[in-house]
Amino acid sequence: MNSMELLEKEITTIIKEIPYIGTLFETYGIRPQNDSVRLGQYLDTLTDEFYEDIGIDRSQLISNLVGFVALADQQPVFKVNSVTIIGGHDKSGKPEDKTITLHVGSITSIVGPTGSGKSRLLGDIEWLAQGDTPTGRSILINDAIPDTNLRFSLEHKLVAQLSQNMNFVMDASVGEFIAMHAESRMIKNVEQIVGEIIRQANLLAGEQFTNDTALTALSGGQSRALMIADTALLSTSPVVLIDEIENAGIDRKRALQLLVKNEKIILIATHDPILALMAEQRMVIKNGGIHKLITTTPQEKANLVALEELDAKMLALRNRLRSGEIIDNA
């Protein structure tokens, strides 16, 4: 829809046709006495002083409204099936000599000391680098060179990040907030998706919470569970980077399965052996470059089973402590 068409429409019709544009009208103080007035007509009645006060002029306001409408009727997101990293060089200029393709539903762990270049690798993926970043790497999407205009597209943001330093800071209940997130994605069946995310999050979290729980009152494990369920079901980003997840209060295996099931490409930056070995492969980062790609061996997978048993034992002890028991046999 262009600006002429939009201005000719009645405000009630616009609100009915375009999801969530009502809240945008409120943002700009557009509150007509008579809803059947055409948008253009209404904007003409506003004084210069009104525009001065809202800090935007008529033409910019219209351009924003048109931009918002374009957002609402954009084509469905194209589907990412694979991301390919074509190696560049490390900090000393040594070539990486590697081409790594990550497919949806795969889990790759990333290991390497702080400052080794994990953020830069993620940065390269997110920026759809084409040999134009300090590492000289190139990124392919679905085996083809991507359109670099997608770099600034919020809707096609490639990487969603999740780290244990992240917290919910918003003053809202869980239900309200997820609904707000669904709204920002212009999703129509909000109630259904909110219900499903909370259900999934509760399957991951040790302790249950509801729609009405305040976001900021969630425990660490509950927050992480909600973040993962929300990322799996509501985020458009095909790549999910997990920067460690705490061991307490969340079923990590199930969390990864949820992301895999929702066709994410999962990267885990971790030095926790259980998390690292859950991945099919791990990337070793050294001096700014991808140093090695190790496929998790059958022996490692067998060791994982032993580690998980150990982990389950710790978890059981934790639960016994929580319920007030005495730990006389460990």
Binding site: M170, I178, M227
Partner: peptide
């Protein structure tokens, strides 16, 4: 330091103010 969901919602609100 904030969740992915909050980042997405916030960016959307910025987009509403400046398309």
């Amino acid at each position: 330091i904030v969740s992915q969901a909050e980042r997405e919602v916030f960016a959307f609100k910025v987009r509403q103010s400046n398309a």
